[in-house]
């Protein structure tokens, strides 16, 4: 099956994503070999759903985005692996949040990762995962220069061997 990347995209946005502008400084391949066996590896998750610990962490700044439509909050949140269903809020103005709030696994599959660990397919889960708010146009520079290095530092501290990123 070849996935059609535009099935669910409003027609007026198609050209924007069919021929995206090149990102300066991002024109060469990058590659980090995956060294361990998957069954021995620690895997982390990163969601762009704008997830935060409800009542504990600040939501992402959607009010500023409402006032500045080209801007997206470039900050990030550390989400503990043990987060319970119902423990997450979602700041994202571009998708309907109902299904992610009803079942966090839709965007951040921590219990699914537990099942893979339990069956011996994956070695271990990271103790902490990451969420960002994926809508970045004006914020891309800050994402690259501040958010990405901070996330990398967390992943190293967690001993992560590889990470599954899932934009919404």
């Amino acid at each position: 099956m070849r996935v059609d990347s535009f099935t669910y995209l409003p027609r007026s946005f198609r050209a924007r994503f069919e021929r995206p502008a090149p990102v300066p400084g991002e024109d060469a391949e990058v590659w980090a070999p995956f060294e361990p066996r998957l069954a021995d590896a620690t895997i982390g998750l990163l969601s762009s759903a704008g997830l935060y610990l409800e009542g504990v962490q600040d939501p992402f700044d959607v009010e500023r985005e409402r006032n500045e439509p080209m801007w997206g909050d470039p900050s990030w949140r550390a989400i503990p692996h043990a987060v319970a269903q119902g423990g997450l809020g979602m700041s994202h103005l571009h998708v309907n949040p109902a299904d992610v709030l009803a079942d966090h696994e839709v965007a951040l599959p921590v219990r699914t990762l537990d099942a893979l660990v339990s069956d011996g397919i994956v070695g271990a889960s990271a103790g902490t995962h990451v969420s960002v708010m994926g809508y970045q146009e004006a914020g891309l520079v800050e994402w690259r220069e501040r958010t990405a290095p901070a996330v990398v530092e967390l992943l190293r501290d967690e001993g992560v061997d590889g990470i599954v990123l899932a934009p919404v």
């Binding site: 995206p20 991002e26 960002v132 690259r144 990398v152 590889g162």
Partner: peptide
């Protein structure tokens, strides 16, 4: 772009996406 930055820092990444053509482009 975030995946690439993490990968460039030495941590392997995989992107699960509804827009794989865009991921290819980038």
């Amino acid at each position: 772009v975030l995946a690439r930055r993490i990968e460039a820092a030495g941590i392997p990444t995989v992107l699960v996406t509804m827009m794989p053509d865009l991921a290819d482009h980038l």
